[in-house]
Design a protein around this nucleic acid. Sequence first.
DNA 1: GCGAACCTACCGGGCGGTCGGTAGACTAAC
DNA 2: GTTAGTCTACCGACCGCCCGGTAGGTTCGC
Lengths: 221, 221
Amino acid sequence: MTVLDNAVLRAVQGSADRDRDRRAEIYRSAARIFHRKGYHATSINDIAAAVGLTKAGLYYYIKGKQDLLFAIMGFAMDQLDEQVIEPARRVEDPQARLETIVARHARLITQDSSALTILVNELEGLLPDDRADIIGRQRDYVDFIADTLAALRDEGKVLGLDPTVGAFSLVGMILWISRWYRADGRLDGDEVVAEVTRMAVSAVLNRDAGRTEAAAGGADS
Amino acid sequence: MTVLDNAVLRAVQGSADRDRDRRAEIYRSAARIFHRKGYHATSINDIAAAVGLTKAGLYYYIKGKQDLLFAIMGFAMDQLDEQVIEPARRVEDPQARLETIVARHARLITQDSSALTILVNELEGLLPDDRADIIGRQRDYVDFIADTLAALRDEGKVLGLDPTVGAFSLVGMILWISRWYRADGRLDGDEVVAEVTRMAVSAVLNRDAGRTEAAAGGADS
DNA sequence: GCGAACCTACCGGGCGGTCGGTAGACTAAC
DNA sequence: GTTAGTCTACCGACCGCCCGGTAGGTTCGC
């Protein structure tokens, strides 16, 4: 009985696993192709062929092209939440938090930029409701960075910088990585991440503020 | 005779002017729509309707959709050459040159981002030869910025920054403006340009460079 | 023999692009 | 000063193609 039960369980579980894996492979492939050619320039047939199915076979797994796009974007946004925002929330010191945000976001992009790049480039392909959903989450992310910059300002480490403009600029710097970074290039991923993180911190920290306060005897951080 | 000649001249000239204006209007409209909806999501009919023509009528002025895209990108690249690169080339001091580049590029985007944004987002829509052309010119631009950063490094104003990564990062920061800047927003164009320029300079200038080497080391990182 | 996992064949529709016009301004001939 | 011809600036209708999506099987492991 137990043996049979286990067998059945394994069978069911195995089947479910296989189904989940197939679905994941489809999303991954679709993300890669959307990333390379753009959402509108990619046909359902392109995706089906990439995963070794016909168009009709693909429709067994997906509801439609737009749902596929929305699912990929949702996945990317989840990634951002889990790998960047949540870890950064646990960092109390604003400067360290900023460094966490930039480094983690940049690393995600150097590792696999497909979904994260689609997330920002293909918003027009979504249905209005879905678009509003994604834009809202992106907005929250920018606000989170802006709040961190505002905290740095309150500490006196940042002077005369608009937190919102600062946040957008840093995001632009990070996202652009996906356009020029090549895994087989001169620098490896970690070096790029470190370089960009240093630039980001340097961009917002006020040079004179550190010097003046240090000269006046005030300790930093 | 003179009167008649003038009249004829005016008529001919006026006709040529009208044709040129119409063409310019078509490119402007197309750029705006490509910018808003994306190249692939825009139909020739959309553009024709926007300029008050039928599709067939539009084809009197253009050779095809891809040529239209290439023309817009070429125009944008010309703008960049004339308004950013050429003026900056005439600035000898590297830091002032960097500021010129960032400020002028940013201003172009706050003024009208359509063509410049298409320039970087719709490369996939071009024919291979056209794409190679545009990518080459973009590459030259990034190299120009990287050379400027290298010159700053030689002056000792920049330490430990990879010029290429620095150039790409600054470009990303600038280009991203078109995604968040709204002419009717809280800050006007000039304020945004100034803010971004300040951030860009701060991002690459080494904070410790201004101080003596001995004093450097304890303040940050 | 039954459901999960596919396929072949097809649909309506919109796409980029073309073709054969044609209204009307202008020119040339007489 | 009429008329026949010409050219510019368009339009309606159409073409072949491919798109996203679907209906109705078929195969195969259990």
